[in-house]
């Protein structure tokens, strides 16, 4: 069972993801530089957070054209699990693997805080160790995390269980008050039609142990290992 962490110039959560897999899951993991043309037979791709290409033009817009991204798209098309976190999510949106786009946060600020996430779909490779309605405490750290899509896309996501995580308060209430960045319907994470690609703005790899404030993020990684082990 091997994980790949794709590294772009400007990625800065790559080591956190690497460590989550190596030290927590005790699985094989390797960095793959964005200029590479092979995923080296990995079983799961992680697109980490950061500021690929300095966020020039739009977040994720330039990384999307890195050579390795064609391999990631082919891997996803064949059903391989791909998780994009924060900037990784933005790259997935730009590459068309997930629908919608990110706007600047409603308050125009870079927001760095721990939020509550409500689990909406626990039937995915990334969420099978969670329960529907469960609340996770995971940090966010972004300026462009204000999820936007047209009405039809939002309906399609909502009607088909493709909203995976929603920003909520400590009691599971997802409303304006518990929405940190202005995302439509408090959307924090979505999946593709087949359910093998997940994009999420919050950072599970930064919530791997109590010492860092929360270990809830470990459940996302546990889920992936569980999924890969069963397949």
């Amino acid at each position: 069972m091997k994980f790949a962490v794709i590294t772009f110039p400007g990625s800065n959560c790559d080591y956190d993801c690497y460590r989550a897999v190596k030290d927590h899951l005790k699985c094989q993991v390797e960095y793959i530089w964005h200029r590479e043309h092979s995923l080296n037979n990995c079983d799961c791709v992680i697109l980490p957070g950061g500021f690929s290409y300095g966020d020039y033009l739009r977040t994720g817009a330039i990384a999307r054209f890195s050579p390795i991204m064609q391999q990631v798209i082919d891997f996803a098309d064949k059903g391989g699990p791909v998780i994009g976190i924060c900037n990784g999510f933005q790259i997935l949106l730009e590459s068309g693997l997930l629908p919608g786009a990110m706007l600047v946060n409603r308050n125009l600020q870079f927001i760095c805080q721990t939020v509550h996430l409500k689990v909406e779909n626990n039937r995915l490779p990334f969420t099978n160790r969670l329960t529907a309605g469960q609340l996770l405490r995971v940090p966010i750290a972004h300026k462009e995390g204000n999820y936007y899509a047209d009405d039809r896309t939002i309906k399609e996501l909502e009607d088909n269980g493709r909203v995976v995580f929603r920003y909520s308060d400590g009691s599971g209430q997802a409303d304006e008050k518990s929405n940190p960045n202005g995302s439509l319907n408090n959307i924090a994470g979505i999946t593709n039609k087949k359910g093998n690609v997940l994009g999420m703005m919050p950072h599970p790899e930064r919530a791997m142990e109590q010492l860092l404030g929360s270990s809830d993020g470990a459940l996302v990684f546990d889920s992936i290992k569980n999924f890969l082990g069963a397949n």
């Binding site: 033009l57 739009r58 817009a61 629908p99 919608g100 786009a101 936007y148 899509a149 047209d150």
Partner: peptide, 8 residues
């Protein structure tokens, strides 16, 4: 292709 994102 790249300079604009047609979604937004």
């Amino acid at each position: 292709q790249i300079l604009s994102n047609p979604v937004i």
